[in-house]
Amino acid sequence: MVILFLFLLFFPRTPSDSKSKDEPTYRLAIAVFLVSILHLVLTFLLSVMVIYLYRSHLSSWANFLGILGTCLAAIQFLPQIWTTWKLQEVGSLSIPMMCIQTPGSFVWVGSLAARFGWEGWSTWGIYLVTGLLQGCLLAMGIAFELRARRKRTAGDGGANGDSNGNADEANGNAHGHVTGEGDHERTVLLGNER
C-alpha cells in the first residue's frame, strides 16, 4: 500500500498536451490506484463473507486467491521481462539485488513447501512463479551485461574514455546523459538537475 501511495504521490503531473501519446497520464495513475483499492476492498469483504458464511468453501477460496495472486504477480513481471528483452540491456535493474532476491525466493518456497506440503501449493506457488520470472530477468541481465562488456573491451579498448572505460565523463557528459538518441539508465529520472 505504501508503494501504491508513493506511486500516486510522485507521478508526474505535467499537462497532457506536453506528453506524447505513448506516455501514461495522471488520470491513468489515479485509475490504477482506484482499481487497486477496489480490488483490496472486494477481496477483504469476500474473504470475511467466506469465513463467516461459507466456511466449507474456505480451502477453495484460498486456492482461488493463490491462483489470482500468481496471475497478478506474473502480469507484474511480464512487462519488465519484455522491455528488458526488447532493449537488450539491463537498464536500471540491479543485478546484485536480483542475485540476492532470486535465490531467496526459492529458499522461501522451500520453507513454505516443507511447512504446508503439497496441499499448500496456493501459498508457495506464487513465490515459485515470481522466483522463476525474476530468475529469467537475472539471466537476461547477466547475459546482456557480459555482452556489453565484451563489446566495450573489443570495440575501442578504452580509446574513447579513461582507463576504466568511462567514456561519458571523458566526453564531457558528466551528468550521464547520452548524446545520441533516447534516454539512458543514467539519465535523470525526474528531469531536475542539481
Rank of each mutant, 00 (worst) to 15 (best):
Asn166Lys: 05
Gly117Tyr: 07
Asp168Trp: 11
Thr130His: 11
Arg150Ser: 10
Met140Glu: 01
Thr179Asn: 13
Gly176Leu: 10
Val107Lys: 01
Gln101His: 13
Gly158Asp: 10
Gly182Asn: 03
Gln101Leu: 14
Val129His: 02
Asn166Asp: 14
Ala114Gly: 14
Ala174Met: 15
Ser105Gln: 13
Gly157Met: 01
Ala170Met: 08
Ala139Lys: 03
Leu137His: 06
Gly158Ala: 08
Asn164Ala: 09
Ile142Ala: 05
Gly172Gln: 07
Leu146Cys: 13
Gly131Asn: 01
His175Val: 14
Leu137Arg: 03
Glu145Cys: 03
Gly180Thr: 12
Leu133Ser: 08
Met140Leu: 11
Phe116Thr: 02
Ala114Gln: 12
Gly180Glu: 08
Phe116Tyr: 09
Gly176Lys: 12
Glu185Val: 12
Thr102Val: 07
Ala114Ser: 11
Asn164Arg: 13
Trp124Gln: 05
Glu185Tyr: 13
Asp162Phe: 09
Asp162Arg: 05
Arg149Asp: 10
Leu138Trp: 01
Gly165Glu: 04
His175Pro: 10
Val107Leu: 09
Gly161Val: 08
Arg150Ile: 09
Arg152Pro: 01
Asn160Ala: 14
His184Tyr: 11
Leu146Arg: 13
Val109Arg: 00
His177Ser: 12
Gln134Trp: 11
Gly157Lys: 08
Cys136Val: 13
Gly161His: 05
Leu146His: 08
Gln134Phe: 02
Asn164Thr: 13
Lys151Pro: 04
Val109Thr: 04
Gln134Ala: 12
Met140Val: 02
Gly172Pro: 12
Gly141Leu: 09
Tyr127Pro: 06
Gly157His: 08
Asn171Thr: 08
Ala159Met: 06
Ala170Tyr: 04
Gly158Gln: 01
Val129Met: 03
Phe116Pro: 05
Met140Ala: 10
Phe144Ser: 01
Asn173Gly: 09
Glu185Phe: 15
Leu132Thr: 05
Ala139Glu: 01
Ala148Val: 07
Ala113Asp: 04
Asn160Pro: 07
Gly157Arg: 09
Ala148Ile: 05
Leu146Tyr: 14
Glu119Leu: 07
Asp168Arg: 15
Leu128Val: 03
Gly158Trp: 04
Thr179Gln: 14
His184Asp: 08
Asp183Arg: 14
Arg147Cys: 03
Gly120Ser: 05
Glu145Asp: 10
Gln134His: 09
Gly104Ile: 07
Asp162Ala: 04
His175Ala: 14
Asp162Tyr: 09
Ile126Gly: 02
Thr179Ser: 15
His184Cys: 05
